[in-house]
């Protein structure tokens, strides 16, 4: 056991290399079994199925929808919303179920915190991973959209970074919520909230169709901002309001990360 190693000791690791070690862990987990791939696979198909059934199917009964000065086919209206939803649900799946399981049951983070890693490193690493998962979905979904002529390659490239921001925002807030969740039953509440947002955030119909009070209420919820931003970019209808959307999502990211790492420190480093 007495051997000499060339590794420099006692120096503090940089934050990027600590975060990278967490991503490395998740890549190893991905490689080591088919179960994770199955989960990934099913997560991609859900929004595609909605696009086909409602966007194309129901869309055949509906006329064009006006966005700015553009008239969009219904499928082209719904597709960017489904794109935003895949970014959201991809990241959320990672920072709710998977995070909670590692946090409370298999104590993965207790093990990590016995090393130089800090709660913030773990939060950033896991969020980065969640965003990558969401981006895998949105990347594939954008290809589907291009193939179905619902966007152009140029606007798809513009929308892609926006979906990454959406993943970060929802992933961060989901992680913060996961640190507060008491048991699996609490997830039902989260999923109900997620589903309500999925239905009403301007996903299937313009929010202007609702009474003003409802419209204002929807304007406060996060998926609305995600859909507005992603739809604007995917359809090439730009507006200053998108800066508000970006600010809203960036704020979610920062606040979610801060709450999540503080709660982790409080619970795991008591």
């Amino acid at each position: 056991m007495v051997t000499t190693y060339a590794v420099v000791r006692g120096t503090e690791l940089s934050t990027p290399s600590r975060v990278a070690s967490i991503l490395n862990r998740n890549v190893s987990a991905l490689r080591s079994g088919p179960s994770y791939w199955l989960v990934l696979f099913s997560g991609f198909f859900e929004p595609v199925l909605y696009l086909l059934s409602i966007g194309v199917g129901v869309g055949a009964l509906i006329g064009n929808i006006e966005i700015g000065d553009k008239a969009l086919g219904y499928a082209a209206f719904v597709a960017p919303a489904m794109l935003a939803v895949s970014a959201m649900s991809g990241a959320l799946a990672e920072t709710t179920f998977n995070f909670f399981f590692k946090f409370k049951y298999v104590k993965t983070y207790d093990g990590m915190l016995a090393t130089p890693l800090k709660p913030t490193d773990i939060a950033i690493g896991e969020l980065g991973w969640a965003m990558l998962r969401g981006s895998l979905y949105t990347g594939c979904f954008l290809i589907v959209m291009i193939a179905m002529n619902l966007t152009t390659p140029f606007w798809a490239l513009a929308a892609f970074p926006a979906t990454m921001l959406v993943g970060l925002a929802f992933g961060a807030v989901g992680m913060a919520i996961s640190t507060m969740i008491r048991g699996w039953q609490d997830f039902d509440l989260v999923f109900t909230g997620q589903f309500a947002m999925f239905l009403f955030s301007g996903t299937f119909s313009p929010v202007q169709n609702y009474p003003l009070a409802v419209e204002i209420l929807i304007g406060l919820t996060p998926l609305y901002h995600a859909v507005e931003l992603v739809r604007g970019l995917a359809t090439g209808v730009l507006g200053w309001g998108m800066l508000v959307n970006v600010a809203y999502l960036a704020l979610m990211t920062v606040a979610g990360l801060m709450v999540a790492s503080r709660r982790m420190a409080k619970m795991l480093l008591a």
């Binding site: 590794v7 070690s21 967490i22 862990r25 080591s32 298999v106 990590m112 090393t115």
Partner: peptide, 17 residues
């Protein structure tokens, strides 16, 4: 539990840089 026995050690080593 998501990793093999060997990977449990190698990923942990990465946490130490």
């Amino acid at each position: 539990p998501d990793l093999t026995v060997f990977e449990n050690l190698t990923t942990y080593a990465r946490y130490f840089g």
